[in-house]
C-alpha cells in the first residue's frame, strides 16, 4: 500500500463516470417513476401490486423456494466444505472441480438439462423441481464461502479438541461450528439471494403456474412498460439489496483484514 499511486488521467475519470451513468440512470429512473403519478407523486402502484393475488403468490413462492433450497445447501455445503478443507483423499481435486462447475456452467444449460432429467424421471414441474434446481447452484456458493472461512481457521484447534478426548461430533459442535458459523451464515444469505434472484434456471424448471417473482416480472415486461412493473421491480431491488448489504456488513465485521 505504501507504493505511490499515480492519479488516473482525466480521460479515465470521464469514462468511469460515463459507465456508472449507463448502469445507474436506468435503475434510478425506474425507482423514481414507480412513485410517479400523472400529476405529482403516489404510492398507488405499490398498493396496486399488493392487491394482485398473482404477485403475492409469486412473492410467496420465491420465499418458499429460497428458504428450502438455502437450508438444504447449508447442510450439504458445510459438510462438503469440511471434507474439502480438512481431509486429503484421492479424487479431492476432481471433487473440487465438480463443486465449481455450477458456477461456470451457463445457466441455460443447467436449466434445460434439469428439465430433460425431470421429465425423464416423471417429476412434476413445480416448487419441488425448482428447489432441486436451485440447490444445484446455491450449494456451490455455500461450499466456497464456508471453505474460505475454514481456510482462515487454525486446524490445530480441532486437533487439540480431539487430543483432549472430544468425540468428532463434540469437536464439530463445540469447536468447528462456532468458528465457522459466520461463513455458514454468509453462505446461506448468498444462497438465498441467488435463489431469490434467479431467472434462467427457474425459467426451465418452474413448469406452468408456479411463478417466482423474477418470472412474474419477466412475463409482465413482455407486454411493455407500466408503472406497476416499476413498483414491483423497485420492491425486488430493495429486497435483494437488503440481503447483499447484510452479507457485506457481516463480512466487514468478521474479517480482520
Amino acid at each position: 500500500m505504501s507504493s505511490t499511486k499515480p492519479k488516473p488521467s482525466r480521460f479515465y475519470g470521464v469514462i468511469s463516470a460515463l459507465t456508472f451513468i449507463m448502469i445507474y440512470v436506468p435503475l434510478a429512473t425506474l425507482v423514481v417513476f414507480s412513485f410517479r403519478a400523472p400529476t405529482g407523486w403516489t404510492f398507488d402502484w405499490y398498493t396496486k401490486i399488493f392487491s394482485d393475488q398473482q404477485i403475492i403468490e409469486a412473492l410467496g413462492m420465491s420465499f418458499f423456494v429460497g428458504t428450502v433450497s438455502t437450508a438444504i445447501s447449508i447442510v450439504l455445503g458445510t459438510a462438503a466444505a469440511l471434507t474439502l478443507e480438512r481431509t486429503r483423499f484421492k479424487g479431492r481435486g476432481a471433487f473440487d472441480i465438480l463443486t465449481h462447475i455450477p458456477i461456470i456452467m451457463p445457466e441455460t444449460v443447467m436449466g434445460l438439462s434439469l428439465l430433460i432429467w425431470f421429465v425423464f424421471l416423471g417429476v412434476t414441474l413445480g416448487s419441488f423441481s425448482m428447489i432441486v434446481a436451485h440447490v444445484t447452484f446455491t450449494l456451490s456458493y455455500v461450499i466456497i464461502t464456508v471453505r474460505t472461512r475454514l481456510q482462515g481457521m487454525d486446524p490445530q484447534m480441532e486437533e487439540a479438541a480431539r487430543d483432549l478426548g472430544a468425540s468428532p461430533w463434540q469437536t464439530f459442535w463445540k469447536v468447528t461450528f462456532p468458528l465457522v458459523r459466520p461463513g455458514i451464515v454468509s453462505g446461506g444469505l448468498l444462497a438465498f439471494t441467488l435463489s431469490f434472484d434467479d431467472f434462467l434456471v427457474t425459467f426451465f424448471t418452474a413448469g406452468a403456474g408456479s411463478d417466482t417473482l423474477p418470472m412474474k416480472i419477466y412475463s409482465m415486461t413482455k407486454y411493455g412498460v407500466s408503472p406497476e412493473i416499476n413498483a414491483l421491480s423497485t420492491l425486488m431491488l430493495v429486497l435483494t439489496l437488503v440481503g447483499v448489504l447484510v452479507i457485506g456488513a457481516r463480512e466487514k465485521l468478521s474479517s480482520p483484514r
Binding site: 459438510a79 469440511l82 481431509t87 483423499f89 455450477p102 444449460v109 438439462s113 432429467w117
Partner: peptide
Amino acid sequence: LDRRIFLALPALIWFLGFLLIPLFIV
C-alpha cells in the same frame, strides 16, 4: 482413514444426480 471424508457424500450424490447425470442425458 479420516471418516470426515464421508461428510462430502451427500453433496457428491447431489452433484452426480442433478448436475452430471442431467448433462449425460443431454
